[in-house]
Amino acid sequence: MTARDEGADLHPIDPSPVVVLVRPQLAENIGSVARAMGNGGLFHLRLVAPRDGWPQDRAMRTASGAYRILESATVHETVADAVADLHRVFATCPRPRHIVKPLLTARGAAAELREIGNRGLRMGLLFGPERAGLDNDDIAHADSLIRYPLNPDFMSLNLAQAVMVMAHEWWMARDATPARDMITHKTHVATKGELENFLTHLIAECDASGFLRNAPKRPGMVRNIRHFFQRGEVTEQELRTLHGIITELAHGRPGARDQGAPEHG
């Protein structure tokens, strides 16, 4: 498999916005943009008057497999031509001035884009040149503006980062991944019954060793032991390991090996 073949499986999974780079200056940045687009499920790229022309081999070197996006990119002389077939256009604009248009966060824009796409309309995202961003004439082609809520004392992003923020929000607007999960591999989260069996074993050995010999304090100490293991998702494999530790510690006491303590795997 060649490096270019590695990106062959990139394909749109649903209607996604067109990314329009207006007067991009560096081929490497265009390649990095394609990589960010692939990460977030954006697959349509248009270039308006790229400074060094197109195509550019240097873009391929920074695309990291997103070659299909670059190979299918189209080049346009003007913003008007690049957005002519679109129904809605959003422009990224870090400091909108003297402009009367709806202003959205990246997350808000992603939600609107999803709704627009669900109605079968075509939409686009405008990103300006690396040094100066979009000018007022570029923004005049947009219906809405997008401003990222970042640290107001430092809002500097390079072109690929700006695209990555929108790509991530576009993806997250449809993603159903749980906010928190537990990786258990070949084991499973222990049931309360399995946990109770372990705690019975542990407390019995704590009694046998004399650790719980202070009768007045014993109930509180037992509760603390229970709380320690009940507050997390202990796995069945971890309980078996702990059973084994307790058994070996019990065997280690003088005379305990002769008493035939139970084995735990």
Rank of each mutant, 00 (worst) to 15 (best):
L157G: 02
F43S: 03
I183W: 09
M172Q: 15
R4D: 06
H87G: 15
H87I: 01
L145E: 01
A173R: 09
E130C: 05
A179T: 10
V20I: 15
H168K: 05
R119E: 14
Q25S: 14
V189I: 13
G265S: 11
M60H: 11
V89G: 01
T241H: 12
R147F: 03
R97N: 05
A3S: 11
H264A: 10
I139H: 02
R119N: 12
G108E: 14
Q259S: 15
N224D: 12
R88M: 08
V222G: 00
D138T: 08
T2P: 00
N158Y: 14
F154S: 12
H168L: 14
A49G: 04
R147A: 12
R61G: 03
A8Y: 05
L134R: 06
V222P: 00
T200P: 00
K217F: 02
I203H: 02
H87N: 15
A215F: 01
A204M: 04
G252N: 15
Q161R: 03
A132S: 12
I245C: 11
G41Y: 07
A82F: 02
M1V: 15
T74A: 14
G117D: 05
P15M: 06
A3F: 11
A250L: 05
G128W: 11
A34K: 05
L121G: 07
A49K: 09
D5W: 05
H98S: 12
D143P: 01
A110L: 04
T241Y: 10
T241I: 15
L26E: 11
P94V: 15
L126A: 02
R61C: 04
L21A: 07
L134M: 10
A109D: 03
H227F: 05
G210P: 12
H11W: 01
A176P: 07
V75Y: 07
V79M: 08
G120M: 07
A179S: 10
G120N: 10
L103D: 03
L150T: 14
P17C: 03
A261C: 00
D81W: 04
S16I: 00
M164H: 10
G65D: 04
L42K: 06
I146H: 07
D5F: 05
P149W: 06
H251P: 01
P24G: 03
I246P: 02
E6V: 12
S32M: 14
Q237M: 13
V79C: 08
T74V: 06
N29L: 04
W170Q: 10
L145F: 03
A176W: 04
E112L: 11
N136H: 15
A66I: 08
A179F: 09
L125Q: 08
L26G: 00
V19G: 10
N151M: 05
G133K: 10
L104Y: 14
G232Y: 10
T247L: 03
A3Y: 13
D181K: 06
W171R: 15
R107V: 09
V83N: 01
P12N: 03
A109F: 01
E71H: 13
A176F: 01
L145S: 06
R58F: 09
G40N: 07
R218T: 03
V33A: 12
D137C: 01
A27E: 06
E28F: 01
P219H: 11
V234L: 14
Q230I: 00
I13F: 09
L86C: 09
G38S: 04
E248N: 13
A49E: 13
H44G: 00
L113H: 02
E28L: 09
A34I: 10
D138I: 07
F229M: 09
A34Y: 07
N158S: 09
A140V: 06
V83F: 00
W54F: 13
D137P: 01
R180N: 07
